[in-house]
Computed example of a mutant assay.
Amino acid sequence: MTSLLFYSIMSSKPLRVGVIGPAGFGGSYLTVELLNRGHTVIGISRNPEKVGKHPRYIPRPVDVDQVSIEELSEVFDGLDVLVSEFGPHTAGPGALLYMPLLESVRKILLAYKLRPASYFIFVGGAGSLHVPGTNISCVDHPDFFLAYRRAISTSLAHIAYMEERLGIMGTSLRRYREARLAESSGITTEEDRTVIADYEKQIRAKDNASDFIKAGRTTYMFFEDRKNFDWSFVSPSALYRPGKRTGKYEISVDEMVLLGEQQEGKDVFEGRLTGISVSDMAIAIANEIEQKKLVWKHWSAWGDISEDMPAPAYVFLDAVEGGSR
C-alpha cells in the first residue's frame, strides 16, 4: 500500500515531543524539523546538548543503558509524544549489537509504560520490512545484504556519511566502489578484482551491519499486534541517507517498495532498492506526530534520492530561528 504525502508545516497545536537520540543522524534532523514547526523538543540522550541551544529545546541527559527503568521513566515525564531514534550502532564497526539493542528497547518500552504519552513512535530499520508478496523480512532474505552494499556503494552521499560515522567501514566501501566502477568501465586491474571478491565474500559470510539490522527487525516483535497503547513503528527505506529536501515522499505499510520488475538472472533486490533523504524522513515522522494516521502500523517512507551529493550527517539548532551552537 502506497500513498503520496506532501510537506505541510505546523498543522496541529504545539506539542512537547521527547526525542531519544536528538544529536544523532535521524534524531538531529527530526529535532530541527519539529522546532521549525513550533513544537517543544525534549532531547533525551547521554549528551543532548551537542545539538545546540534553542528556547524550545530542553536537554535531559541520561544514559539509557545505565539507568533503571524507574529512573528512565522520570525522564519521560510531561511528554505529549515520545519518539525513539535510539541507535547503539554508533558504538562503531564490529561492536556486538544484537542483544544490547533488544535490551535497551525493552527498557525504553517498560519505562514508557510507567509514564505513557499519547503516542510512541519507534524508528527501526528497513530489515523488518517484508519482501513484496511474502512474509519474509528483507533482512532474512539471502540476497539482501549483497544488494544493499552494492546499492550504497553507488552513492557518494552514503559513502561520505559512513566515513564520517564509521571510519574504516566507509573507507572500504569507497574502495569497493572504485573497483566496481573500474570493472564496469572495462579497465579493472587484478587488485580491483581482488577488492571486489574479498568485499563480497565478507558480505556473504557475515555483513558487518547484520547484527544491528537483525536486531532492528526483532524489535518490531515488541509492538506487533499490541493495541494497549498507541504506537507506530517506522522503517526508513533501505537507502536512507543525507540528501536533498524535497518535501515529498510515499508511504508503504509492512512491505519494502522495490522499483521496476525483477530482471531475469538477478536477485529480487538487485538495482531495485528505494531510499529517502534524512530531511524527507524527518518530514514524514513529524507529519505522523501531528496527524496520527498510522497508529498500530509498521510503515516505511521513500522518496527522491536522485541528487547524490555528500551532505551533513547531522544538523544543529543554528538551523532554526532562535537557535545557536
Results as ranks from 00 to 15, higher is better:
Glu224Arg: 15
Leu166Cys: 01
Glu191Asn: 14
Ala238Ile: 06
Arg174Lys: 11
Glu250Leu: 12
Asp207Tyr: 03
Phe229Gly: 08
Ile159Leu: 10
Glu164Asp: 10
Met162Asp: 01
Val253Asn: 07
Arg175Thr: 02
Ile159Arg: 14
Asn208Arg: 08
Arg177Glu: 00
Ala160Gly: 09
Phe229Pro: 11
Ile196Asn: 08
Lys244Val: 02
Ile187Ser: 06
Ala205Met: 04
Phe212His: 11
Thr246Ser: 12
Glu178Pro: 07
Arg177Cys: 01
Ile187Lys: 14
Leu173Pro: 03
Ser184Lys: 14
Asp211Val: 02
Lys248Val: 05
Glu190Met: 10
Phe233Pro: 12
Ile187Met: 09
His158Leu: 15
Ala157Arg: 11
Met169Trp: 03
Ile168Thr: 11
Met162Ser: 05
Lys227Met: 10
Arg175Gly: 00
Glu190Leu: 11
Asp207Asn: 13
Asp198Val: 13
Ala209His: 02
Tyr220Trp: 11
Thr194Tyr: 08
Ser252Glu: 11
Phe233His: 14
Gln202Glu: 12
Asp207Trp: 05
Gln202Gly: 12
Phe223Trp: 11
Lys214Ile: 02
Tyr161Met: 15
Tyr199Pro: 10
Ala182Ile: 06
Glu250Arg: 15
Ala215Pro: 10
His158Ser: 15
Lys227Ala: 06
Lys244Ile: 03
Arg245Asp: 03
Asp225Gly: 06
Glu190His: 06
Tyr199Ser: 09
Ile203Asn: 09
Thr171Gly: 01
Thr194Pro: 02
Ile159Ser: 04
Lys214Thr: 07
Pro236Val: 07
Ile159Met: 09
Tyr240Lys: 12
Met221Ile: 02
Ile168Ser: 06
Glu250Ser: 15
Gly216Asn: 13
Leu173Ala: 10
Asp225Glu: 13
Val253Met: 11
His158Asn: 14
Gly247Gln: 07
Ile251Ala: 05
Pro236His: 09
Val195Phe: 04
Asn228Ala: 06
Thr219Gly: 04
Arg204Trp: 00
Thr219Tyr: 04
Ile187Gly: 03
Ser184Gly: 02
Tyr161His: 15
Asn228Trp: 07
Thr218Ser: 12
Leu166Ala: 03
Gly167Leu: 10
Glu190Arg: 13
Trp231Ala: 08
Ile187Asp: 06
Asn208Cys: 03
Ala215Ile: 12
Tyr161Glu: 09
Asp254Ala: 07
Asn208Trp: 04
Ile196Tyr: 06
Tyr240Ala: 11
Phe223Ile: 10
